[in-house]
C-alpha cells in the first residue's frame, strides 16, 4: 500500500510499531527488496537485509549501540549512517527512510520497477 500522499516518496506500510519491541529485528519484503527493521530504544532503522560484503542476510546480527555485526563474516555497520566500521567491506548499508504513521512502520525503499513477464503478452 502506498503512503497517503503520493507526492512524498514511496513509503509503504510494513508492520505495527508495537510489534517491534526495543532490541528487536524483523525482516519484511518491500517490493522485491528484503528489508531489515531494527529497533534501538525508540529509534527504528531500516536497510536492505543484504550485507554489502557477500549479500548475505544481516538478520540476527549482534547489535551494540547503533552498530550491527553481520553474522556471516563479521562486517560491522553503523545503522544511523550505513557506514562500514571495519575493513572487510568498504561498501555501506543501503539505508531506507522510515516514518511512523498511525502506529505503522512505513519504509521508503524507492520505486518498484518490475514488469511482469507473464502479464504483458497475450491472455
Amino acid at each position: 500500500m502506498p503512503g497517503s500522499d503520493p507526492a512524498d516518496g514511496d513509503f509503504v506500510d510494513t508492520i505495527a510499531l508495537a510489534a517491534l519491541e526495543a532490541g528487536a529485528q524483523h525482516s519484511v519484503y518491500v517490493g522485491m527488496r528484503r528489508v531489515l527493521l531494527c529497533r534501538v530504544d525508540t529509534d527504528v532503522f531500516a536497510f536492505r537485509d543484504a550485507c554489502p560484503h557477500a549479500l548475505q542476510p544481516l538478520k540476527g546480527g549482534a547489535i551494540t549501540g547503533t552498530t550491527i555485526r553481520c553474522p556471516k563474516h563479521g562486517a560491522c555497520f553503523d545503522m544511523k549512517t550505513g557506514m562500514p566500521q571495519n575493513g572487510i567491506t568498504k561498501a555501506s548499508l543501503e539505508l531506507y527512510a522510515v516514518r511512523i504513521r498511525d502506529g505503522i512502520v512505513q519504509v521508503d525503499a524507492g520505486p518498484d520497477k518490475r514488469p511482469n513477464p507473464y502479464q504483458q503478452f497475450g491472455g
Binding site: 522485491m32 528484503r34 543484504a50 560484503h53 557477500a54 549479500l55 548475505q56 518498484d112 520497477k113 518490475r114 514488469p115 513477464p117
Partner: peptide, 17 residues
C-alpha cells in the same frame, strides 16, 4: 535489472564469490 525479481540478488550473491 529489477525485472528479474528475486534472481537479481541470487546472481549477485554468486557473482560475489
Amino acid at each position: 535489472v529489477p525485472e528479474i525479481g528475486l534472481l537479481a540478488i541470487i546472481f549477485d550473491q554468486d557473482m560475489g564469490n
